[in-house]
Computed example of a mutant assay.
Amino acid sequence: MSDYDAELNAIGLPCPLPVLRIRKALETLEGGQTLYVVATDPGSLKDVEAFARITENELLEAREEEGQYHFVIRKRISSR
């Protein structure tokens, strides 16, 4: 997935681990960079949507495909 700045494999991780790993992965990125995530926890769909909204990161894509949940998140550009 060379279209993204970083990738996170959260397959097999139960709630809340996918979101915790996403938070940690985003800390390594610069504002405006994108993170691709794949997870299998059904709760991750709502969890990642809520996480993006609360943290003001942009959820560019959220889809389910064959039991896997795919997300693309753009890290917010800090106003500091």
Rank of each mutant, 00 (worst) to 15 (best):
E58M: 08
E7D: 04
A6W: 02
S44W: 00
Y69C: 04
G43R: 14
G67L: 06
Q68A: 12
E65Q: 15
L29I: 01
A50V: 11
T28Y: 02
R76A: 13
L60A: 03
F51M: 04
R63V: 09
R23E: 15
I11S: 11
R21S: 07
V19T: 15
T28D: 13
D3F: 03
L20N: 15
V72D: 05
G31P: 11
L20Y: 11
L20G: 10
I22W: 00
Y69H: 12
E65Y: 11
L26N: 08
D47I: 00
T28C: 01
T28G: 09
L35C: 03
K24Q: 15
E66V: 02
S44Y: 01
A52H: 03
G67V: 08
A10K: 07
E7I: 07
I22F: 00
D47C: 01
P14T: 11
V19R: 12
R74T: 05
S2T: 04
T40D: 06
S2Q: 07
P16L: 10
P16F: 06
Y36W: 11
E66S: 14
V19E: 15
L17Q: 15
L13K: 15
A6R: 14
R80F: 10
V38G: 08
K46D: 07
L59R: 05
L13H: 10
R74C: 07
P14M: 08
P16Q: 09
S78A: 13
I11M: 12
Y36V: 01
E65S: 13
M1G: 14
E58T: 15
L26I: 09
I73G: 06
R80A: 12
P18Q: 11
P14K: 11
L8T: 07
